[in-house]
Computed example of a mutant assay.
Amino acid sequence: MEKKGKVLAAIFIVAVLLGAGLWAVISSNDEEDIPVTLTDAKGRSVTIEKAPHSIVSVSPALTEMVYAFGSGEDLVGVTNYCDFPSDVTERVENGDLETVGGFFYGIDVEKIILLAPDVVFLEESVSEQISMIPKLEQAEITVVVMFTCYNSTLIKDNIEIMGKALHKEDKAESLIVTMDNKFEAIRSKVENSEDRPRIMLVIWWDESSIWVSGGGSFVDEIIERAGAVNAFEEKEAWAMVTREDVVAADPDIIILAAMSMGDVNTALSVLKSDALMAGLPAVVSDEIYSIFGQSDNIFMRQSIRMVDATYICARIAHPDLFDGKVPKELGDDYSEYLPITWAD
């Protein structure tokens, strides 16, 4: 009798556990099917009837964010410029993922309609993207407009919006907490340093013009969080400056970004051959860095990887506080210079 009681008790426990597991699955599925209403970057009220499983992203930064949510496999369309993570380019090359044209121009709205996605993510500042909304909505395609992120606050806003759109609000909260924790880890290392090197980030430099990242830009926040000073913080977000302006700014460190230039070698050659620049602290101490590929993207793309750029910038500014300097030329291998604990 006692043995029979134990058997019945065991069966009861198993049934409870199985029931709990089944209920968890049912609850999870029910949550995916519950309509969610959000307010997007244009102030539009958008209702997502159920968790989307086919997504088009018309922005490299937003494609990165979709992958950060673990929804990369649901992407059916991206731009020609979407190249991170590497799975994006691999799927495009294999024919498993469609490209829908450019970012600022040349977007193929008809192709997007043919893909019939559950949701399309657009960027608010790109007029050609915004102009597609009526046509997409006429085709009964849900559109969510996201912020163009000029700072980390807007990145977090985008995470929250995308979390609602994907029915992954818990994941959104986790991504924001992780981002904040990484920023805090950097701050705790640099906050007590008396050294605040002046950094000049260049997006264009040839014999006729010089363009730099000024105050209020995405890069400006990266430099500040890295425990340094933007040498052109008094300028507009993206400003053309003179050679004399550069001398007056007196940068301790110069970072040449390849995004606009394509090849930083020309800029480096012009800089080093200019006698007027010979006395700059950055030139005298050879503190000139070239970033290209994914290293360039983390600084210039205004994406969720902003915190990676901040860490790399902090290592450039304060190598003594971290694990030494990074190479003077940094490309797709930038992740090798991040903390091992940051690997996702």
Score class of each variant (00 low, 15 high):
residue 58 V to E: 11
residue 68 A to F: 01
residue 40 D to E: 11
residue 48 I to Q: 08
residue 108 D to G: 01
residue 27 S to Q: 14
residue 111 K to I: 06
residue 79 T to H: 02
residue 45 S to M: 11
residue 92 V to D: 01
residue 88 V to N: 00
residue 69 F to E: 05
residue 67 Y to E: 10
residue 37 T to N: 09
residue 96 D to M: 09
residue 21 G to N: 09
residue 81 Y to L: 05
residue 19 G to W: 09
residue 40 D to A: 12
residue 45 S to F: 04
residue 58 V to T: 14
residue 56 V to T: 06
residue 95 G to E: 02
residue 83 D to W: 00
residue 80 N to R: 08
residue 73 E to L: 02
residue 49 E to P: 02
residue 100 V to Q: 00
residue 105 Y to G: 07
residue 104 F to E: 15
residue 24 A to R: 14
residue 22 L to Y: 15
residue 39 T to Q: 12
residue 36 V to R: 15
residue 23 W to R: 13
residue 41 A to T: 10
residue 79 T to G: 05
residue 104 F to M: 13
residue 100 V to T: 01
residue 24 A to T: 13
residue 77 G to I: 02
residue 78 V to L: 03
residue 85 P to Q: 05
residue 26 I to D: 10
residue 65 M to F: 09
residue 62 L to Y: 05
residue 26 I to A: 15
residue 84 F to E: 11
residue 64 E to Q: 12
residue 101 G to W: 04
residue 34 I to L: 13
residue 58 V to W: 04
residue 60 P to I: 06
residue 76 V to H: 01
residue 43 G to M: 12
residue 87 D to P: 00
residue 35 P to Q: 10
residue 102 G to R: 01
residue 19 G to V: 09
residue 22 L to S: 12
residue 83 D to G: 09
residue 101 G to D: 05
residue 65 M to L: 15
residue 31 E to W: 04
residue 60 P to Y: 07
residue 50 K to F: 09
residue 30 D to G: 00
residue 87 D to Q: 14
residue 85 P to M: 03
residue 50 K to A: 12
residue 62 L to F: 05
residue 72 G to I: 04
residue 92 V to K: 01
residue 72 G to F: 05
residue 113 I to L: 07
residue 54 S to G: 04
residue 37 T to K: 08
residue 69 F to A: 07
residue 96 D to R: 07
residue 105 Y to Q: 15
residue 41 A to F: 10
residue 24 A to D: 13
residue 91 R to K: 13
residue 95 G to C: 01
residue 25 V to A: 11
residue 113 I to V: 13
residue 29 N to I: 14
residue 87 D to W: 00
residue 100 V to I: 13
residue 90 E to L: 09
residue 45 S to K: 15
residue 89 T to F: 00
residue 26 I to V: 15
residue 40 D to N: 09
residue 62 L to D: 15
residue 43 G to D: 11
residue 69 F to P: 00
residue 109 V to T: 13
residue 110 E to Q: 14
residue 83 D to E: 13
residue 22 L to N: 08
residue 63 T to Q: 06
residue 44 R to L: 10
residue 66 V to T: 11
residue 56 V to I: 13
residue 63 T to L: 06
residue 47 T to G: 09
residue 83 D to L: 04
residue 96 D to K: 11
residue 32 E to P: 00
residue 42 K to Y: 06
residue 75 L to P: 01
residue 97 L to S: 02
residue 35 P to G: 10
residue 22 L to Q: 11
residue 20 A to L: 15
residue 20 A to P: 01
residue 49 E to Y: 07
residue 86 S to M: 07
residue 66 V to L: 03
residue 49 E to C: 03
residue 39 T to K: 14
residue 60 P to M: 07
residue 25 V to M: 12
residue 58 V to D: 09
residue 53 H to A: 12
residue 70 G to M: 08
residue 110 E to L: 05
residue 71 S to M: 13
residue 48 I to P: 04
residue 50 K to V: 07
residue 80 N to Y: 07
residue 108 D to M: 02
residue 70 G to N: 09
residue 91 R to Y: 03
residue 113 I to P: 01
residue 104 F to K: 14
residue 96 D to L: 10
residue 56 V to H: 05
residue 104 F to Q: 14
residue 51 A to C: 06
residue 91 R to D: 12
residue 23 W to M: 14
residue 37 T to R: 06
residue 98 E to S: 14
residue 69 F to H: 03
residue 59 S to N: 08
residue 86 S to Y: 03
residue 84 F to P: 01
residue 65 M to D: 08
residue 40 D to T: 10
residue 23 W to S: 12
